[in-house]
């Protein structure tokens, strides 16, 4: 019967493929992004951030970068930057989602926590010429983003996506470049959910606690690795200073250095590392950067 009637066959095939579709794809609409998923702190994009997001899509950054911190410990450690794994409620304003399927480059879900600098100096330098910051990087150069931002549709985008905006937000777009927009987007990623800053506690105690690592031998192996991984892109491979100041042979006190590394100096682009590095590792760094050799 089936082997002889194509019309019945087609209908039956449709029914068969709709079973799994209904249960795993259509039904979940009932609760995904529902009230249970919502997170009050998560805010929609501003016009500038949304423009940046659209540029991110235009350039296909998602082909190399994912935007989800998985629930794995190593993922949280590497890409959480003091925050936690990604939650459904963080993505409710993302149309489309940009989770990606490849990590040719690092995950960017919480990149805003990693580079807090309000001027975006790190991002600008990196996007213009990634190899100038990370020599072995294979990320393309995006210097061409230093072009005026097309704001023709900015307001219409906000309306279509049903995001709140003010006239000030729109005025803010004047004179901005595409680079400014994409940096605004990078700086927003992952910053909505407050991360617990251990900084306040540890830096207060830093004045009393003495640096447990005072000799080079005790720290060199660990600290050099930590430095290369977390600091070299801003302070130079040899601590000679690039985006951030030179650190070689710093004359600051141990407690002062601990406080800066742990708490950061957000406004000027020095990130806080209290969420990424534990006290032990920060103390080792303190000893390491003060050295004036090597």
């Amino acid at each position: 019967m089936l082997e002889k009637n194509p019309v019945i066959f087609i209908i039956l095939a449709f029914v068969v493929i709709m079973v799994g579709t209904t249960i795993t794809m259509i039904a979940p609409f009932k609760w995904i992004n529902g009230p249970g998923d919502r997170i009050a702190e998560v805010k929609p994009y501003t016009p500038l951030q949304q423009e940046g997001r659209d540029l991110y899509m235009r350039e296909g950054c998602n082909n190399c970068h994912s935007q989800t911190v998985r629930t794995l410990a190593a993922d949280v450690e590497r890409y959480g930057y003091g925050g936690t794994y990604s939650k459904s409620g963080e993505f409710v304003y993302d149309r489309p989602h940009l989770w990606g399927s490849r990590r040719t480059g690092p995950d960017l879900a919480r990149i805003g926590l990693k580079y807090p600098d309000s001027k975006g100096a790190w991002h600008k330098k990196h996007l213009e010429n990634p190899q100038s910051v990370v020599p072995a990087s294979n990320m393309p150069s995006y210097a061409f983003l230093n072009a005026p931002l097309d704001t023709t549709y900015s307001e219409r985008k906000m309306k279509l996506l049903d995001f709140p905006y003010s006239q000030a937000d729109l005025d803010d777009l004047k004179g901005k470049s595409e680079m400014d927009a994409i940096i605004a987007y990078m700086r927003k990623l992952g910053t909505d959910i407050p991360v617990k800053k251990a900084a306040a506690v540890t830096s207060a105690s830093a004045a009393v606690v003495k640096n447990p690592f005072t000799t080079l031998v005790a720290v060199e192996r660990d600290a050099e690795g930590t430095y290369k991984q977390h600091c070299a892109s801003c302070h130079g491979e040899k601590r000679e200073g690039t985006l951030g100041p030179a650190l070689k042979g710093s004359v600051r006190s141990d407690a002062e250095l601990f406080k800066i590394i742990s708490g950061g100096i957000d406004v000027n682009g020095m990130p806080s590392f209290s969420g990424t590095l534990d006290d032990q590792n920060i103390w080792k760094l303190v000893t390491y950067i003060k050295l004036d050799t090597k």
Partner: peptide, 19 residues
Amino acid sequence: LHLFKSYSAFSGTNDANVQ
């Protein structure tokens, strides 16, 4: 939005699941 740009009908986790 215009001839060369549209936004997905679904958002976030739903969009990922559909995708």
